[in-house]
Amino acid sequence: MARYFDVKRQTGFATIAIVTFVLLYLPIAILVIYAFNEGESLANWEGFSLRWFVAAANNDAVKQAAWRSLVIAAFAATFATIAATMAALATTRTRRYRGLTFKYAMINQPLMVPEIVTAVALLIVFSQVKVWTGYSGLGYLILAHTAFCIPFAYLPVRARLENMDLALESAAADLYATPWKTFRRITLPLLQPGIVAGFMLAFVISLDDVVITEFVKSGGQDTLPTYMLGQLRRVITPEVNAIATLFLALSVLIVTAFFFINRQKA
């Protein structure tokens, strides 16, 4: 059969791409499958069972860690989204002014420094503050998470602002809306998808964090990821797989929602 010349084709690229996708998903698939294993081992398949999910659900340490993860993520994402939205408003749609570059650098700083470096730096500072104040609650974790969530929340809000037609706000002002009313009635509603996207990104980023949490947490403040990290040092049962699977499902859910919100408003 004659093959027409395809300008986009590159020999072997499609094969490598398929291999890549298989490599990306195979380990996750195996992890999920073994979460349903009847037996205690991660090596032999002994039949389908939900017993490890039940075990995870009855494990108080897991429940507490999961709850703590959600609480921290909810607070950190909320604070980060508010701060990032304000910062995005302050740093877009303007001529260059003194300090603008400084602001960009500050906001993106958490993305540029290796997590482990920030983690130990926070360990140094917070351990001292804990001694001084005697407070050792979740506040430290929430503060640290808020800081590294800000650049992630900032990104979609800023993108949304930069794509927004400046004439819309001019039009509102032209139609007798004061600056505050223009913000409330025009800017904020139009910004909303970006804010929602920013919140979701921040939430996932906070939920996923291992390194900074591991170094900042006080005793008994395990989040789900640090709890799992601890478990990996011991003999692993499919219970870890079950926890990971649930965690995975939550992440996929949020990312899917994010994907569709972004697509719909593109």
Binding site: M86, A87, T91, M106, I150
Partner: peptide, 9 residues
């Protein structure tokens, strides 16, 4: 407006 983000970071 950018103060909260800058201070937290």
């Amino acid at each position: 407006l950018s103060a909260p983000a800058l201070i937290i970071i």
